[in-house]
Amino acid sequence: MGISEDISARSPPGVFEALRRSGAGIAGCGGLGSNIAVMMARSGIGRLVLADFDRVEIGNLNRQRYDLDDIGKPKAEALKEAILSIDPGITVETYDVVLDRSNIKEIFSGCDIIFEAFDSPEAKSMILEAVLSDMPGKPIICGNGMGGISDPSLMSTRKIAENAYVCGDGVSGMDSGLCAPRVCICAGLMANKAIQILTGSGKNV
């Protein structure tokens, strides 16, 4: 039995196998994207496409899945190292680019699901519009409202269209600061919805 199979020993039946056959695209490798990538890796995802134009800074370490050794590295590359240190059997593609309407389809077309994990609200609405318009039927999960430290139970997963979901409380932005617990809880809501979709158990939930 290889490492990957051993990792799945405690997984719910069928989850690891379904995810192993699947690919996920992560648009933005910050607080949401880095934690989502790690959760998807631990859950069995077979392929990850990571895209971010940014470099790791010390100020990211309060919530993002990087450490001091990663400072200055392109985020997508540093995240790839983290993923492969969990499970070297995952195929990881990285893009050190600014994502926009002109390249989103090309970069993520081979993925079964796309995570919106940007920080700017303009970029968030841009990719949601781009995926719904240019990639009909492709599931997308967005994060919206995970700032501050207010009660995380106010965060939820909302279905806004067939194959489109938004997680978060919808109101807590960056002005209240970003702290690891709520960012990771939102990332967890997003990863969990993806697992439901990829295993065929939550498409219409």
Partner: peptide, 10 residues
């Protein structure tokens, strides 16, 4: 109509 009004943070 569904409106998703995004706030910053990720």
């Amino acid at each position: 109509m569904e409106i998703v009004s995004f706030v910053g943070g990720g």
